[in-house]
Design a protein around this nucleic acid. Structure first.
Lengths: 339, 339
DNA sequence: TTGAAAGCGCTAACAC
DNA sequence: GTGTTAGCGCTTTCAA
């Protein structure tokens, strides 16, 4: 574009020292006389020198960039993910953590087999130091492909069994138990659940945890309807539930959007929430308090989890941590209006 | 990590040709005999060679990465942006367009003066070929800083006057006119509006456009309450409006979330939507049809706009386009239940 | 403490 | 058509 950007060479000439010396002060290595440091610093100032990352990377093999991969499958998959508040929270957590380390996330989408290969390809070109994988799918092959290629990887949510990779996860079952306990404590006895896509491990764990907790309290047979984590699907699931069990008095939905969908449908059918039917959501995302009724929900600290995920990756990259590590987070019940 | 990744040199040796020849087939340059091409291709296969991006960049000066900068100011600013469906739509549009060009977005957040400088710094290190700026603020200085540094830049939304930079924008006033026309056609005459932060040019344009359209139809004096684009703020604004003008029969909200907030408040106050008060939103984001009432709204083709923004940047980067260009999009009225 | 020099892996003239 | 060669801008031994 303009006339060539200043290089180390230019600064060196300007300061009357060697390239090596300039490099040393730029990288904060000691062994440089204070006065020379000062001279160099001024020369940098005058020339407006910025180190060239690519050149530096060529020798250090560190790009200070990590890939944030949204993995999953299907038509319009990406659009759905990006519309979900969950995605924004993850990005937020990742960015916050990375910034403190002067690293940056590049967004990659892996929605098909070929896209997955492209991601692996991209990463093996040394464009990023590692990968953060957020998957919307069971048995996502991406993490395995990545680790097989020896690319530092950390995943959000428990990976498929047998895969030796670091991850962060929520104690899903505990969250479900919290929801069950709250519903029970309210006096609900005819309790149903709107679960998430069973293909998703997290959704399965919430469902199982919920069933287990209820069974332990003597409530057997829990009617289940599956949704897709959207408001619509929550309403549809609620409708199915109501058709077969008109006397339901408590519902646990596997995320907040479905919980809202359930609330809406319930109200349309003339049921009051929470008086006639209590509804508990999951996530405590921004939508929990955006629409009425404000949701009683199980909080998942997504930003924190995403931050920890990024932190783990950073440690793997710099070699501070070598063994695959799992970090679990505790869910928390947030009581509001819906139950 | 492992033993050194294979380089061009390795492939060349394996294939029994020179580095240059391998480079040519890798980059799809002609002037290579078909049989040699085949030999090289097989050698690449055998060695598992992946070109090293940094090395390539060092000579081509193209990183095939662009920065997607979320710019704005304030505490918790980032969290708010990331929670907004708008952000996801932008990312989606950008990623789709970039992928086709084998480029990738790296997410940067510029929420303070120092963060802005870091962004400029980052880009002057040649880490990305250009910047996509999405700002949530009036007179954002970032775009100016970027263009001053000769970094190819395209912004989402009209930049401050006098700044010679490419941008994409919606014909905001047309959108407001659509909303006004619809409300008028329904027979509304006591019409108010919940506008967005006046600091935002887009919000101001919607407001002005709305006023103008109404004035042209002989409806003067439009009560205005300002919100912050959140559901809450929409409800609060509606409440203020109602306090002063209890007989309002039509409302235009500057985005869908505020429209939902207004609908909720209206219903809480015993008003039926749309029978007693008609509400028109703006954006046609995913929330428009997620909650009842489904919103009548002005569609803003965010994904398309974001895609065009990325496309413009790509052209600027590859030199196909040199003059700053503005591309405008036409809004569209989507009639549903709320008006 | 500083400088000289050897690459890092690749592309692009230029020569053959 | 293909190979040779000279860098791109930086870090990092190794000597001095």
């Amino acid at each position: 574009m303009s006339e060539r950007a200043p290089t180390l060479e230019d600064v060196a000439r300007e300061a009357g020292v060697s390239r090596a010396t300039v490099s040393r002060v730029v990288n904060g290595v000691r062994n440089v006389a204070p006065d020379i440091q000062e001279v160099v610093r001024r020369a940098i100032e005058r020339t407006g020198y910025r180190p060239n990352r690519a050149a530096r990377f060529l020798v250090t093999h560190r790009t200070e960039t990590v890939a944030l991969v949204i993995s999953g499958t299907g038509d319009a998959f990406a659009a759905r993910v990006f519309a979900d508040p969950f995605f924004g929270r993850v990005v937020n957590g990742v960015v916050s953590c990375l910034r403190a380390r002067a690293m940056h996330p590049v967004i990659l989408v892996a929605e098909s087999e070929s896209a997955r290969r492209q991601v692996v390809d991209y990463l093996s070109q040394g464009t990023a130091d590692g990968a953060l994988v957020v998957t919307m799918q069971a048995a996502d092959p991406l993490a395995a492909m990545l680790t097989a290629t020896k690319i530092p990887t950390v995943v959000f949510g428990r990976p498929e069994p047998g895969l030796d990779v670091s991850y962060v996860d929520l104690r899903q079952a505990d969250g479900a138990r919290l929801a069950a306990g709250h519903l029970l404590a309210r006096g609900c006895r005819r309790i149903a659940t709107v679960c998430g896509p069973r293909a998703l491990p997290a959704a399965r764990e919430r469902l199982e945890g919920f069933r287990t907790a209820l069974a332990a309290a003597g409530v057997g047979e829990v009617p289940v309807a599956e949704g897709t984590f959207t408001v619509d699907s929550g309403a549809a699931a609620m409708s199915r539930l109501l058709a077969e069990h008109p006397d339901i008095d408590g519902v646990f939905a596997a995320n907040d959007m479905m919980a809202h969908g359930a609330c809406q449908l319930l109200r349309e059918r003339g049921k009051r929430v929470p008086q006639d039917v209590a509804v508990v959501g999951f996530d405590d995302s921004s939508v929990a308090v955006a629409y009425r009724p404000f949701l009683t929900t199980v909080r998942q600290p997504v930003e924190q989890m995403a931050g920890e995920m990024a932190g783990l990756l950073a440690e793997h990259i710099q070699g501070t941590r070598t063994e695959p590590t799992a970090v679990f987070f505790a869910p928390e019940l947030v009581v509001r209006d819906s139950a």
